[in-house]
């Protein structure tokens, strides 16, 4: 019993360490940027929102901290946490460490929605809504195709196959839109959008994405124990008393809400949902009760750090999707080479 308790408290300690790491990254992110802000001013500006401090700083410093950096930090941490936790949930549900949150075509669908909006010259808010809507539509289509195709004993395979198909259909539709687009303006706009960026995230974007992301994350978090059971496969989970269909649908819906909202405001940010859960598992073991919170904390810190690089490395903003994929790719390779060792 004593040993058992110490194992659990060690895991709780790991989570605490990750939380401290995230707090440090958040603090550092307020200090990083192309506009020089002295650390004490940054801290004072933040503190002044909680307690009264007579401003001794120039107003544009406050604007930099609160209007430029704060929304980006919130967006990067939130989207990083959300994509990672959906990745972890999907990997558990599909019983495969190489699954990422867009396996069912949500990113392709959202990309298509955005490309369509850009092509038709819609305003930014409508482009976001289109991206979000088509992301949901793509996954709904995959799910319906899979359940219409018959109730197999293990329907995850059918869902994944249907997801791959709808995903590739939407990818081709994106190409079709790109092909039809005006090459000087619309085409690069679509391309840049798909690369992903938090450069122009504003408070309005946060309001847009906060609800689906929070609802999705909270739901996945509540289902962390059931994910353990689901990872033994549909039949066993059912025999253990889980309503498999309903649970799967809930997890898919939550992960889809999250990913579609994330893509809608930040474009397609790759690999994070694949790599972070893997790292989390290395740190806290396989139990989803710990993998999920660890993925949230680690994912938030990871995307925040990547975005700090994106906005401070060069004068021009580097698309975030490029950075996460570039830094994530070596991990992914490691993952491929070591999958058997880590999983079996």
């Amino acid at each position: 019993m004593a040993h058992e308790i110490s194992a659990r408290s060690r895991l709780r300690l790991s989570l605490l360490a990750l939380a401290v790491l995230l707090a440090c990254v958040i603090l550092a992110s307020f200090l990083i940027g192309r506009y020089p802000v002295p650390p004490h001013v940054a801290l004072a500006v933040m503190a002044s929102k909680l307690v009264h401090i007579d401003p001794f700083w120039r107003p544009e410093l406050e604007a930099v901290i609160l209007k430029i950096r704060l929304p980006r930090i919130v967006a990067a941490a939130g989207i990083g946490a959300a994509l990672s936790v959906s990745g972890a949930a999907y990997q558990g549900m599909f019983r495969n460490p190489l699954v990422s949150p867009d396996i069912l075509g949500v990113s392709a669908g959202a990309g298509f929605g955005a490309a369509l909006g850009i092509l038709l010259g819609w305003p930014a808010a409508s482009i976001q809504t289109a991206a979000f809507g088509f992301g949901l539509l793509a996954v709904a289509a995959a799910y319906l195709i899979a359940s219409w195709g018959g109730e197999g004993e293990d329907s995850t395979l059918a869902i994944v196959l249907a997801g791959v198909v709808t995903g590739s259909v939407f990818t081709s539709l994106i190409s079709l839109l790109k092909f039809a687009a005006d090459p000087t303006n619309v085409l690069p706009a679509i391309t840049f959008w798909l690369m992903g960026s938090l450069a122009s995230v504003s408070a309005r974007d946060l309001y847009f994405a906060a609800w689906p992301i929070c609802v999705g994350m909270a739901t996945l978090f509540l289902f962390r124990w059931k994910l353990n059971v689901l990872s033994f496969g549909g039949e066993e989970a059912r025999a253990l008393g889980v309503n498999v269909q309903q649970t799967r649908l809930t997890i898919i819906a939550s992960a889809t809400l999250i990913t579609a909202a994330g893509v809608a405001i930040a474009g397609i940010i790759g690999l994070i949902g694949l790599v972070v859960p893997y790292l989390a598992r290395l740190l806290v073991g396989p139990n989803h009760a710990f993998v999920l919170p660890a993925s949230m904390l680690l994912g938030a810190a990871y995307l925040l750090a990547a975005d700090d690089l994106a906005r401070s490395l060069l004068a021009a903003e580097i698309p975030l999707g490029i950075l996460t994929s570039l830094t994530g790719a070596p991990f992914f390779l490691y993952l491929l080479l070591n999958t058997r060792k880590a999983w079996r």
């Binding site: 940027g33 192309r34 020089p36 544009e60 690069p188 450069a199 903003e317």
Partner: peptide
């Protein structure tokens, strides 16, 4: 930057 580059909001404030 040629046809279409991008800069950061913080540079603009600066």
């Amino acid at each position: 930057l040629a046809g279409r580059g991008s800069v950061s909001m913080e540079d603009l404030v600066r």
